[in-house]
Amino acid sequence: MQNTPNIAAQPTELIALPEVIKITGFKTTKIYDMVNKGVFPKKVHLGTRSVRWVKAEVLQWTNDLMAAREHRA
C-alpha cells in the first residue's frame, strides 16, 4: 500500500491580491494579464467582486520559476 497524503484533509489557504503581489513582486495588472494568458494560477471566485488565489498554487508557481532558472544556468 502506497503512503499518499490525504489532500482533502489539509486546509486550503486562500489569499487576497495584496499577498499575491507580496509573494510574486508583480503588480495587479501583470498578475491579471498572466492569469488571462493561462501562465499564472487561476483565481477562485468567492462572489461577484471577490477573488482569491490558492496560496499553495502561487507558491508552486514561484518554485517552478526558480527551478527553471536553475536549469538555464
Rank of each mutant, 00 (worst) to 15 (best):
M1C: 07
Q2A: 14
Q2S: 14
N3G: 14
N3D: 11
T4I: 13
N6Q: 12
I7F: 09
I7Q: 11
Q10P: 02
P11W: 01
P11R: 06
E13C: 09
L14C: 05
L14G: 00
I15H: 01
A16R: 03
L17F: 03
E19R: 04
V20F: 00
I21H: 02
I21Y: 01
I21F: 06
I21R: 05
K22N: 13
I23V: 14
I23T: 11
T24R: 02
T24E: 02
G25W: 03
G25E: 08
F26N: 15
F26V: 11
K27A: 13
K27Q: 14
K27N: 14
T28Y: 13
T28L: 07
T28H: 04
T29Y: 12
T29L: 11
K30F: 09
I31A: 01
I31Y: 00
I31Q: 02
Y32L: 08
Y32V: 04
Y32W: 10
Y32Q: 08
D33W: 08
V35N: 03
V35T: 09
N36S: 14
N36M: 07
N36T: 14
K37S: 14
G38Q: 06
G38E: 05
V39F: 03
F40C: 13
K42F: 12
K42E: 13
K42Q: 14
K43I: 15
K43F: 10
K43H: 09
H45Y: 15
H45T: 15
H45G: 09
H45F: 12
L46S: 11
L46C: 07
L46T: 03
G47R: 02
G47A: 11
G47E: 04
G47M: 06
T48W: 01
T48A: 12
R49E: 05
R49G: 13
S50N: 11
V51Y: 00
R52M: 06
V54Y: 02
A56Y: 01
E57G: 00
V58H: 01
L59Y: 03
W61I: 08
N63Y: 10
N63P: 08
L65Q: 12
L65T: 08
M66H: 10
A67C: 08
R69A: 07
E70R: 15
H71V: 12
R72P: 09
R72V: 10
A73I: 14
